[in-house]
Design a protein around this nucleic acid. Structure first.
Length: 121
DNA sequence: ATTCTGACTTGGG
DNA sequence: CCCCAAGCCAGAA
């Protein structure tokens, strides 16, 4: 099928933008409706270890039409992380509420109750 | 090529 | 509750 190496016109290695992002997005795609995962949790599941920040970077890089439920990722405090873009955080919260996730007065959700617990890592 | 700038978390003061 | 530092990727200017 595909030439596996050295075709003059093809790169030896696929020019993927970023392995890191791809892996992160893959994990986030697994988060079921009505459940949430923290940045740290996603980092672990993606095999990045303690690098929750990278998860934030990867999600920030998502195009608007990406088939990734980015809104299901919240911070370790169970809150929607403040976003630089106006309204972005409001949208995230709205999307979660639409899936049945409730927030308390301080804008915090119950991680114990809503956290996604994948059987397989 | 260098610099800047974000969706984080943890440990400590 | 607030503040600070470290760890570290990628796209834009």
């Amino acid at each position: 099928m595909l030439a596996t190496r050295g075709a003059a016109t093809l790169p030896a290695v696929p020019a993927r933008r970023s392995d890191l992002h791809a892996r992160i997005h893959a994990v986030v795609r697994r988060i079921p409706r009505g459940r949430v995962a923290t940045y740290g949790q996603v980092a672990e599941l993606a095999g990045l270890g303690r690098q929750p920040r990278l998860v934030g970077y990867a999600l920030a890089a998502l195009p608007d039409d990406a088939p990734v439920p980015w809104h299901r990722v919240v911070n370790a405090q169970g809150r929607v992380s403040p976003r630089a873009t106006p309204g972005a955080d409001r949208l995230q919260r709205a999307l979660l509420e639409r899936e049945g996730v409730r927030f308390d007065r301080s804008g915090r959700l119950d991680l114990e109750r809503h956290r996604w617990r994948p059987r397989r890592a």
